[in-house]
Design a protein around this nucleic acid. Structure first.
Lengths: 213, 213
DNA sequence: CGTTTTTTTGAGTACCCTCAACAACGGTGG
DNA sequence: CCACCGTTGTTGAGGGTACTCAAAAAAACG
């Protein structure tokens, strides 16, 4: 996964990534307040991060695809601050954090890699806040699809045609709107010829126009 | 600032925090796309983080008080991803990131401290997303005031009585609502006996009730 | 194949935004 | 010191976007 490491560093890194774990759709990788021991690299599948209000309402704070990293929220307090729940059958690499930390002391480039990963999370989250803060429902759905598209493209999948793994409700929860509104926006984009949908199957017909929404 | 360092480590840390810098109200500490060299500890004053849309609209993504750290968004890409603008005359400690990074390789506890700081930012931002995603305007303003109150308390200031340094517009922008709505919520809280306002001067009368909104 | 979950669509409503006017505040210069 | 001006804050009226409630169709699941 890290790119800037030399062969020896890579070998040492591989040595701490021992186990993998299978998570079934709907099961959790970790829960809020669980003690923090590991971070996880997603080998296959996808997850959502969820935080719970005291009143029981849930908020989806992110979706995580294969190739991305999960669990960094726990570094600060030694406890996770959200639930990580598989939205399809998935498998992850377990990276024991204590070992990673030790290894960081030995390898500067690995340390830089970890810091970059964390900083990347900060940037991702604040760009998301912008999504929720300044945009209309229509723009939010468009931005969400484009974000997903570019992340899938970066992993070697098609940028134009893909399956949504989450429900309209999860998407709406994440985007700060109701599931009906998400559905309406999809219908609208289809009417306007920007994309074609068939349930969770998405084909983006006019990527540029979607960006201009 | 770091607490878990021994004396020698603290001395070395101090040695890299050489300069301080004064920023006048309205001036920027750094701008989006500036090359990333330093992080900053706020000695006095307060800042806002702002990201700019292509269409020119701005989104405030955070407020930063004295005692907090600023600039970690740049670690990932070597460029800052937001503007940091002083909302009152302020002064910061300059912490050259390259030196901090080197020092991290020598001191494990410093390394942990830096990682914790970053993880803390991630947690803070995602709790903020919840704010924008699931709450009504009334609840958002209440949550914002409580958040500010607890941060001020943690720094030794009064939790009940303080000055807002930002305008209604900046607050509204941050919270995803219009300045008029912020103003109306303040008026409502005052009518309901939860707080007293006089412009930027705030006194929280009933902290519990504000939490139950 | 029946049951449950998910998605779509419609109608009515509530919340927040827009536009507007005015009041209060803070700085500036006469 | 006070008049003046720009900025900031408050409040009202009307309108639009997204929510709520509801029902039915479609898909997923065992």
């Amino acid at each position: 996964m890290p790119k800037t490491l030399n062969e020896q560093e890579l070998t040492r890194f591989d040595s701490i990534v021992s186990a993998t774990r299978l998570i079934k759709r709907g099961d959790s990788l970790y829960r809020a307040n669980d003690p923090f021991h590991n971070i996880y690299a997603i080998r296959a599948g996808s997850f959502k991060s969820v935080v719970m209000h005291r009143d029981g309402r849930e908020q989806v704070t992110g979706f995580h695809l294969a190739g991305e990293v999960l669990g960094l929220d726990g570094v600060c307090t030694e406890h996770h601050s959200s639930d990580a729940i598989a939205i399809e059958d998935s498998s992850v690499c377990i990276i024991p954090y204590a070992l990673l930390e030790s290894l960081c002391a030995e390898s500067k480039s690995l340390q830089q890699q970890v810091l970059r990963m964390m900083s990347g999370e900060i940037v991702r989250e604040s760009s998301l806040m912008m999504l929720l803060g300044t945009m209309s429902a229509e723009q939010r759905v468009a931005a969400f699809l484009l974000n997903l598209s570019s992340r899938l493209k970066a992993r070697g999948y098609s940028a134009a045609e893909f399956n949504l793994r989450m429900t309209r409700e999860e998407m709406g929860n994440f985007l700060g709107m109701k599931l009906e509104t998400v559905s309406r926006m999809f219908s609208k984009f289809q009417r306007d010829g920007l994309l074609q949908t068939h349930g969770k199957q998405i084909r983006i017909v006019n990527l540029d126009a979607l960006g201009r929404v």
